[in-house]
Amino acid sequence: MADLDPSEHTIDELRDELESIDDPDTLEAIRESESENENRTGALDAIDERLDAVEDDDDDDDASGSSDADGTDVSGNVSAGIVEVRNHVRDAAADLIGRPLDSIVEIERDGDGDDWRALVEIVERRSVPDTQDILGRYAIQLDGGGTITGYRRLDRYRRGDTRRDEEPSQAL
C-alpha cells in the first residue's frame, strides 16, 4: 500500500486506510506526500498518530496491556481525549457535511463513557447581514478513539435567533 495518495481521500477515509499500514517508512512517505500537496492539518495529524502507534507497537512488543496514563486502555486501544476529539471534529466536520463549520458548541462523553458526542453549527446559507445566515446544528458521534461514526442535523435557524443560545442542548 506504498502508493497511497492521501490527497485522494477525506481525512476519515485516510485514517481508515492508515490503519492497515504498519511500516514507518511507508507512513513517512505518505506524510511527505501530504505535506507537499494538500498539507491538511487533520491529515498530517492522522498520519502522525498512526506513526506514533506503529512506533509504540515496536517499542512495546513484549508488553502485556498498558496503563491508562498514556491514553491506552487495557486492551491496547488508544482512547482519544477531549482535545483530540475537538481537533478531529474541527478538521472533519466541514468535509463530512459539505458546508463550512461555524463553531463547535459542545463536546461530551456519552453515558457509558466510551464514545463521544459533539454538537456543531454549520453555515448552510450565507446572507448579508450575517445575522441572517442560516445555520444548521448537527450532532456528531465519535467512537472512543475519536473516529466519526455518524452524524445528523438537529435543527436549522437564523444566526440572529437569540433564543437558540438560551436553550440548553437536549438533542444529544
Rank of each mutant, 00 (worst) to 15 (best):
N39K: 10
R40Q: 02
T41H: 03
G42Q: 08
G42D: 02
L44N: 05
L44C: 03
D45P: 10
D45E: 11
D45M: 08
D45I: 15
A46L: 08
D48W: 05
E49S: 05
E49K: 00
R50N: 14
L51I: 12
L51W: 04
D52E: 13
A53N: 12
V54D: 10
E55D: 09
D57A: 12
D57R: 09
D57N: 08
D57C: 07
D58A: 15
D61G: 01
D62T: 04
D62S: 05
S64A: 11
G65S: 09
G65Q: 06
G65H: 11
S66Q: 07
S67G: 11
A69L: 07
A69T: 13
T72G: 06
T72E: 08
D73E: 09
D73R: 15
D73I: 14
V74T: 11
S75F: 14
G76I: 07
N77T: 04
S79G: 14
G81R: 00
G81A: 05
G81M: 03
I82W: 12
I82C: 10
V83I: 15
E84M: 01
E84W: 02
V85D: 07
V85R: 03
V85K: 01
H88I: 09
H88Q: 09
R90M: 11
D91Y: 02
D91F: 00
D91R: 00
A92D: 14
A92W: 12
A92C: 14
A93V: 10
A94G: 04
D95Q: 15
D95N: 09
D95F: 06
L96D: 03
L96V: 04
G98W: 04
G98L: 00
G98A: 02
R99E: 02
P100T: 04
L101V: 00
D102S: 09
D102G: 11
D102R: 02
S103T: 14
S103C: 15
V105A: 06
E108K: 06
R109K: 12
R109M: 08
D110C: 06
G111Y: 03
G111T: 04
D112H: 13
D112T: 14
D112W: 13
G113M: 11
D114W: 13
D114I: 09
